[in-house]
Computed example of a mutant assay.
Amino acid sequence: MSDTLWENNIRFERAIEAFLDEVVPPAPDRAAARSVLDAIEAANAAVHGYGSQVFLRSLGECFERLHGHPASPAERARCEALAATVSSAEVELIPGVAETLGALAERHELLLLTKGDRAEQQAKIEASGLAGRFRAVHIVPEKDVAAYRRLAEQHGLVPERSWMIGNSPKSDIVPARRAGLNAVFIPHQHTWVLENDVELDPHDTGVLQLAAFTELGEHF
């Protein structure tokens, strides 16, 4: 739930914009180049997971796909610099998150579930200063139905009385609902496009949609 608590994917978007500006030209056009990169990222995520090193792999493969040859040492170095920007442990909390979590922690048991490279995610969690608000923190390779079921079993959760809070339909809402948990969907304008390619059931009464994280206090 990284983008639910702090800005995360915006770093990737900024790096991609710079990649398309500085490294990719002369691609056929910007939209076509982005489509190629999205497809490569989806394939690499399925095999290699997430994080800056997988992102770097995707940038290199995208360059080679578009240009027909591997990146030069200078181009490779620029890709490495861009990939490094997404792994910075410095975090920018979304406004109101710390205060809202503090209030919720007084009334409820909170767990943090996030996915990605373990070392990079752990560094961001520590830098956020939020770890103390949670009973436990779990970093997993993928947030799928099995991950939610393991979490519920490990902590003795009653699924129908438990809520997953997140911004990703693909990783937060749909798999949590399939595991029997309720879910709170808080859309984020910079959610990764590959996390938005799953549609939510508008008639699902087990999903509560809110406009901002701070609204949680009004419901819980």
Rank of each mutant, 00 (worst) to 15 (best):
A179T: 13
L20G: 04
R107D: 09
E61A: 13
D144K: 12
D201S: 05
I173K: 02
N182H: 15
T114K: 02
N196V: 02
R118V: 13
T100W: 02
R57V: 07
R76W: 14
G206S: 11
W163N: 07
V137F: 09
C79P: 07
P187E: 03
D172H: 03
A147I: 09
V91M: 00
K124D: 12
T85L: 06
V36P: 02
P73G: 04
V137N: 05
K115V: 04
P169L: 12
T205M: 07
R177Q: 02
P28D: 09
R65P: 04
G217Q: 02
P73V: 00
W6M: 08
A84T: 03
F220M: 13
D38F: 11
R178G: 00
E7W: 10
T114D: 09
Q53T: 06
N167T: 14
D117N: 13
Q209F: 04
N9S: 07
F12Y: 15
R150K: 06
H203W: 08
I40M: 08
D197P: 07
E109N: 11
A119V: 14
R11I: 09
Q209H: 11
V174P: 03
F134Y: 06
Q121D: 07
F220K: 10
G96H: 07
I10N: 03
L20Y: 10
A15V: 09
A45K: 12
N44R: 14
A152G: 13
T100P: 01
H67A: 01
E106P: 05
A81Y: 11
T85H: 05
A123Q: 11
A136Q: 12
T85E: 15
Y148A: 05
R14E: 12
R57S: 13
V91K: 03
A18L: 13
R11D: 09
S88N: 13
F134K: 10
G206P: 08
A77Y: 06
E90N: 10
I139N: 11
S2W: 12
A45N: 12
F213E: 02
A81T: 14
G156T: 02
E199N: 11
I125G: 11
T85K: 10
P95H: 08
Q154A: 14
P202Y: 00
S128N: 04
G60H: 13
L210R: 03
L157F: 12
E142S: 12
S88C: 13
A43F: 04
R161H: 14
N44H: 15
F19D: 02
G102F: 00
A32K: 11
R118I: 01
L101W: 03
G68E: 07
E75G: 04
L151H: 07
P95G: 03
N44Y: 15
L208H: 07
F185P: 01
R34H: 15
A43C: 06
E126W: 01
R150G: 01
P73F: 10
H203S: 12
A146G: 01
Q122Y: 08
P202I: 08
A179S: 09
S168I: 08
R14N: 10
E199K: 10
V47L: 14
A179Y: 02
S35A: 14
A33V: 07
D201P: 09
T100K: 01
E90D: 15
D204F: 12
L210G: 06
E215M: 02
N9C: 05
I165S: 01
T4F: 07
P70Y: 13
Q53V: 05
A136I: 05
D29A: 09
L111C: 04
D117A: 01
A84D: 14
L93Q: 10
E106V: 12
T100L: 01
